[in-house]
């Protein structure tokens, strides 16, 4: 009787440990996937900003169609719904490679306002990029400001 009980207890215990282990590894993967996807989002933003910036600096020739396309994609990337990307528990220190500050979740309203500033600036940029080079140059300031303001408050130091 005692022995059966003990074996059952060990069995249940082992099963619990195994389940917990699976759950942990599952959420670990989900967390690191989310961080990678965020980095991909940032890369898309940087890539399209780079096309606009290259024209602003005079490194590449101004082309209204290309500039409009870059601004349109920048705006799309800035508008990704945050729910799938900014999973709780994926802050810097918890997941390798993450530089997300805990404030993203503790001050989610502020974070969403900060992201909204990029959505607004990039929407204005679609208009500006198609107008002329001077308008594009002027628009870069607002985009840069939105990136910088959010990074300042919600991005941690380099790992």
């Amino acid at each position: 009787m005692h022995l059966t009980k003990s074996i059952t207890a060990i069995g249940i215990g082992a099963a619990m440990i195994a389940t917990a282990g699976f759950a942990a590894s599952h959420s670990e993967k989900a967390a690191s996937d989310a961080v990678n996807a965020r980095h991909a989002q940032m890369q898309l933003i940087a890539y399209h900003t780079g096309i606009l910036g290259g024209m602003a600096k005079g490194e590449t020739e101004y082309n209204a169609d290309m500039a409009t396309a870059a601004a349109t994609n920048l705006h799309a990337a800035a508008g990704f719904t945050p729910d799938t990307l900014w999973l709780e528990g994926t802050e810097q220190g918890a997941v390798e490679g993450s530089r997300a500050k805990a404030e993203i979740w503790s001050d989610s309203e502020g974070f969403s306002d900060a992201f909204m500033a990029l959505e607004t600036a990039s929407a204005d940029m679609i208009e500006a990029a198609g107008t002329d080079l001077d308008a594009l140059k002027a628009g870069m300031g607002a985009v840069g400001k939105a990136c910088g303001a959010c990074h300042d408050d919600y991005r941690g130091p380099k790992n």
Binding site: I45, M140, G144, G148
Partner: peptide
């Protein structure tokens, strides 16, 4: 041109932002 852009919009040549 990289420097001037950085002073204007805060973008580095990699399009990261000043912090």
């Amino acid at each position: 041109a990289d420097l001037v852009e950085y002073f204007t919009s805060g973008f580095t040549p990699e399009y990261d932002s000043a912090g």
